[in-house]
Simulated scan of single mutants.
Amino acid sequence: MSVDASLTGPRPERSTAHDVRQRLEHARSSRLTQLQALQETGQSADDHLAATQKSAIEGVLKEIESAFTRVDNGTYGICLGCRKPVPAERLEILPYTPHCVGCQGRSAVL
Results as ranks from 00 to 15, higher is better:
9 G>R: 11
48 H>L: 15
44 S>N: 08
55 S>D: 10
8 T>K: 11
100 C>I: 04
3 V>T: 12
95 P>L: 00
18 H>S: 15
14 R>P: 00
10 P>K: 09
32 L>V: 14
95 P>W: 00
27 A>R: 09
97 T>K: 01
3 V>Q: 12
56 A>F: 07
91 L>M: 05
104 Q>C: 09
101 V>Y: 10
106 R>V: 08
110 L>F: 13
63 E>I: 04
66 S>M: 11
97 T>A: 08
89 E>V: 08
42 G>I: 07
46 D>P: 08
67 A>F: 02
67 A>G: 05
105 G>E: 12
61 L>Q: 02
75 T>A: 07
91 L>D: 08
107 S>Q: 11
56 A>Y: 02
97 T>M: 02
52 T>P: 00
23 R>C: 06
16 T>S: 15
60 V>L: 06
66 S>G: 13
28 R>C: 04
25 E>G: 06
95 P>N: 00
39 Q>A: 15
11 R>M: 14
75 T>I: 06
88 A>C: 03
17 A>S: 14
100 C>Q: 05
29 S>E: 15
30 S>L: 14
13 E>W: 08
108 A>Y: 10
104 Q>F: 06
97 T>Y: 01
59 G>I: 05
1 M>T: 12
59 G>F: 07
62 K>I: 01
96 Y>R: 04
36 Q>E: 13
49 L>Y: 08
92 E>G: 07
65 E>H: 04
9 G>I: 15
3 V>F: 08
65 E>D: 13
15 S>W: 02
3 V>I: 15
39 Q>Y: 14
87 P>K: 00
2 S>Y: 07
41 T>C: 11
109 V>R: 12
91 L>W: 07
74 G>F: 05
68 F>Y: 07
76 Y>C: 02
88 A>S: 11
104 Q>R: 13
90 R>D: 03
50 A>H: 06
86 V>D: 00
1 M>V: 14
52 T>H: 10
78 I>W: 03
75 T>W: 02
26 H>C: 09
97 T>G: 01
80 L>N: 03
82 C>N: 01
78 I>S: 02
49 L>R: 07
45 A>I: 14
6 S>A: 11
38 L>N: 01
73 N>M: 05
101 V>D: 09
91 L>N: 05
96 Y>S: 12
100 C>N: 05
81 G>A: 06
81 G>E: 04
32 L>K: 12
4 D>P: 08
22 Q>R: 14
110 L>D: 11
43 Q>E: 13
26 H>G: 11
106 R>F: 07
28 R>M: 14
39 Q>G: 13
71 V>N: 00
27 A>F: 03
103 C>Y: 08
63 E>Y: 04
4 D>G: 01
83 R>C: 07
17 A>V: 13
21 R>A: 11
85 P>E: 02
89 E>T: 07
24 L>Q: 09
102 G>E: 13
68 F>S: 04
94 L>G: 01
74 G>Q: 06
51 A>E: 12
37 A>H: 13
23 R>M: 13
53 Q>T: 06
20 V>T: 14
62 K>M: 06
